[in-house]
Design a protein around this nucleic acid. Structure first.
Lengths: 126, 126
DNA sequence: CGGGATCCATACTGATACTG
DNA sequence: CAGTATCAGTATGGATCCCG
């Protein structure tokens, strides 16, 4: 009940501004928690992957969204893009140290969702 | 990084189907990582909040999206809705045990994003 | 093989009005 | 106070074709 002497998580979020509309972390959060961003980061968390490999691993992603997601994550410094100018062209994607760090926080969440998905979906209707 | 039990993370995700298009966990993941879902869950992670309180805490959310997000999270069994039929009416929202469990995994991620937001946004142009 | 360009569907937002 | 309903405009996601 008492909040004054408590340095809470919510206070920290408010201080750091995640809940503030104009804060840059909002943008990052949107990238990270985007529909495909999570899955791409998770896929790359274990090993480097080529474009086609990613496309097959992250089932259901369209080529446009894969490209868009990778470009965003690359611009954010989370994903490294390694282009080999050959024929056929070869592009490898991997996580940067920053991306690896993020993935460490992301994977437990994915694991939880995987564990509790049935529990959630199988609930009685609204 | 070289710990042996980490090798199975991606395998587990593939096994449980998070990366599979038809898996129910995809739906849950979408709800949980939705633009506003994360922020609402984070806000409720510390304390119960009323509608107007949530609306003010999660800056920038529209009434429509707040209602929609809350309905989705409630249907998923993550948020509990407590209606007090009085005048004026009072509705409190809180996390269910399941939601609290989820928030435990979500908050570290939010904290990480808050910590590294500047680092990411303020990257030097290539 | 890797991806850009285009077009269409859906999701989101904002404003307003109305209800219990 | 706590919503629901509706309209209209914008943003985002997805499918398809196409090119180096």
């Amino acid at each position: 009940m008492t909040v004054s002497n408590e340095v809470s998580v919510l206070d920290r979020l408010l201080t750091d501004g995640v809940l503030s509309a104009a804060c840059p972390s909002r943008v990052v959060l949107d990238h990270v928690t985007s529909k495909w961003g999570v899955l791409v980061l998770a896929s790359l968390s274990e090993r480097t992957m080529r474009w086609g490999e990613l496309r097959r691993t992250v089932e259901g992603i369209s080529e446009k969204m894969l490209a868009q997601t990778l470009r965003t994550l690359e611009a954010d410094g989370l994903v490294h893009r390694d282009v080999t100018a050959s024929i056929p062209p070869r592009v490898d994607y991997s996580l940067t140290p920053l991306g690896t760090d993020l993935a460490a926080h992301l994977l437990p969440l994915l694991g939880w969702v995987a564990d509790h998905a049935d529990e959630i979906v199988a609930r009685p209707a609204r």
